[in-house]
């Protein structure tokens, strides 16, 4: 009798394990069943120019995050006469890694130490700031929900930003707390309606992030902070992470490519073709002083036939 009971328990547990395994698989497979309004292509076309920029009456306004020859932070530069404008609150972020706009013209900024930690103390690196589209005022928007605090051996926190109009989500990569032999980085999905993190991809040290709607579903691409490799992960209809990361390509494998890492993804549409541009940087979990004259941008074209990015060319960044 006891043996029969034991067999029944084992069979029941096996059946439950199989059920949950199937459920997990179904969740991944579901990504290929696309939502009704799903459109292949760009996901950030709804981003607006901030209202305060319009009021500056600049002839050719550009958002300048290169932070060279000034004391850090974002600048609005009039390309027609090279004049610049900066709200006094923008120095809060110190030097910065990335900026992004949303569908209302609000801007989001991720801090990043540059040359020294004077303007970017480690304890203030794992957070992002928001610049209000109307007032141009910068305020702390969100501290990443992590117990890891940047320090002198890894002074980095938030790194890359990307906005997805479909889900009104901001994706933020962070490498806070990562160790030489331990990837403790996280990519966060922030729901901008709820102003909170709603999904996380853990154990991933990433810098650049970018979202694109592929043939098989919504994907987030990211550049590893440790290798010249690009990975992707599927997102569901709410923009949540689904399944594991997949290796896509390596910029060092490109003829003439470098052993650098991808710091930024830009998706665009030219002549009815989707183009992915990857900007590179040299990163080694130490302070950056980006002045490499041979920095490159790599351009890829999306192949609808086989759902892959095909290398086109590179040029100087």
């Amino acid at each position: 009798m006891k043996k029969i009971l034991l067999i029944v328990i084992v069979m029941t547990l096996s059946a439950m394990a199989y059920f949950f395994w199937q459920q997990q698989n179904n969740k991944i497979i579901k990504t290929t069943h696309l939502p009704p309004k799903f459109k292949i292509g760009l996901v950030n076309g709804c981003r607006k120019i901030p209202q305060f920029i319009n009021r500056l009456n600049m002839r050719q306004p550009a958002i300048d995050s290169k932070q060279q020859d000034h004391n850090g932070g974002l600048l609005i530069r009039d390309m027609s006469n090279n004049s610049t404008w900066q709200d006094e609150s923008w120095t809060k972020s110190g030097y910065l890694a990335a900026f992004e706009r949303d569908n209302k013209g609000n801007m989001y900024v991720a801090p990043l130490p540059y040359v020294s930690l004077t303007l970017n103390p480690p304890q203030k690196q794992n957070q992002i700031y928001k610049i209000d589209t109307q007032t141009a005022k910068m305020d702390l928007y969100l501290k990443m929900p992590s117990s890891e605090i940047p320090n002198n051996k890894n002074p980095f926190g938030t790194m890359g930003l990307f906005y997805d109009c479909d889900t009104n989500s901001l994706y933020v990569s962070s490498v806070a707390g990562s160790l030489p032999k331990q990837e403790k980085g996280v990519i966060y999905q922030i729901d901008l309606n709820k102003n909170k993190v709603v999904s996380q991809l853990k154990h991933v040290d990433a810098i650049g992030v970018g979202v694109f709607n592929t043939l098989k579903g919504k994907k987030l691409y990211f550049g590893s902070a440790r290798k010249p490799h690009i990975y992707s992960v599927y997102l569901d209809e709410k923009g949540h992470f689904v399944g594991d990361k997949n290796y896509e390509l390596s910029i060092s494998e490109i003829q003439g490519g470098n052993t650098t890492v991808a710091k930024k993804f830009v998706f665009s549409r030219k002549n009815n073709k989707f183009i992915m541009t990857i900007k590179e940087t040299e990163f080694g979990f130490r302070l950056l002083a980006e002045n490499n004259p041979n920095k490159k941008k790599y351009h890829f074209e999306y192949s609808l036939a086989d759902d892959k990015w095909v290398f086109l060319a590179f040029d100087n960044d």
Binding site: N152, P180, G284, R286, L287
Partner: peptide
């Protein structure tokens, strides 16, 4: 150090 440091 060249890795995991705050050196430039």
């Amino acid at each position: 150090c060249p890795l995991f440091s705050s050196a430039v």
